[in-house]
Write a protein that binds this DNA or RNA. Sequence first.
DNA 1: ATCGGTCAAGAACGATCGTTCCTAAACTTG
DNA 2: CAAGTTTAGGAACGATCGTTCTTGACCGAT
Lengths: 183, 183
Amino acid sequence: MTDRSRIVYGEDMGRPRGFDEAEVVRAAAALFADRVYDGVSVDDLVGHLGVHRNSLYKTFGSKRGLYLAALRRHLDDDVRPLAEAVAAADGPAAAADLVAGAGLDLLLLAAVERAPADPEVAALVGEALDVLDQALGAVLPAPDAAATGAFTSALLGLRIRARATDSTTEPGSAALARRFDIR
Amino acid sequence: MTDRSRIVYGEDMGRPRGFDEAEVVRAAAALFADRVYDGVSVDDLVGHLGVHRNSLYKTFGSKRGLYLAALRRHLDDDVRPLAEAVAAADGPAAAADLVAGAGLDLLLLAAVERAPADPEVAALVGEALDVLDQALGAVLPAPDAAATGAFTSALLGLRIRARATDSTTEPGSAALARRFDIR
DNA sequence: ATCGGTCAAGAACGATCGTTCCTAAACTTG
DNA sequence: CAAGTTTAGGAACGATCGTTCTTGACCGAT
């Protein structure tokens, strides 16, 4: 017979979850990628994520907690794999196309709107940019710190313009890569 | 007798204004330059602008109306003069320093967060970017459309990173300019 | 002096924000 | 089955959002 006073209740007791946490975070990242943080309401989240209010706060603590989880997942699932592909790319032009074609809007928005007001976001953004710097530096024929940083920033700038003018084509990345492909 | 002699009255004269409309728009532009549109409340505006709620709505119609006025003023008072200075600059490096040193945060924020959701903002942003393109194209030794567009975008990207990491120094502009200073 | 008009000051509106609370259903364990 | 725990489903909270309304002070023209 078990001693009742020693019973430690496991985490897997009770009603099982009706949602996949990883999938919820991924869906949240998608929402935060094309609207500003303040533009995504908790109602929007519970409406599109298949998770209900109570579970959201139980699991992530707050709207900001879910946002940070989404940003971390974006870094791990999108930025780092992209960086690996970039580092293995054949020259700056191919690398630029990879970055331009990747979905980095969440990182972009985080850098512009949240990082200046949220140190934790700023740290994650800085980490992501460093990862991209390192990868892009590996494909530049004559890399130096300032140049790789400028290359990374320039690619983000191209995406800004594409977002703002809703242009599907991005001929700028080729021109940019050519300017950085000097040896 | 009075310093109100400079005030131009409307057709139906009433009590003269206690605020300078141009100055209000300029102050609004400053507020919108370092916070997101949704992050600046009407209370913030009436608190910092020296204009009363009633007058704000009477003069600009809505918060969005004031924002659009601020963006137009930013274009006329900041972007266009900057473009003229850039076009007269001695080479890409000097031009890049001019752009990097100018306060283009309102344009940057507008491009990233408002343009995708507000066509009127998108039009103004596109106009501003075109103005900068034209000016930067004038100082590039071997200009072509794609390259100048990339140069403009790249300078915006540099500002993003500076904002996100709160770095006061911007060595990237020099490296960027060097890459674009080929002939 | 008085009238028509604008402006100033602030209360107040409905809507929506992020968050919390309550209740019932679902599931594991003893 | 009973006990215990966690979820789902919403209602509801106070705060704040953008906007409007009310009231009175002010000003130029009659």
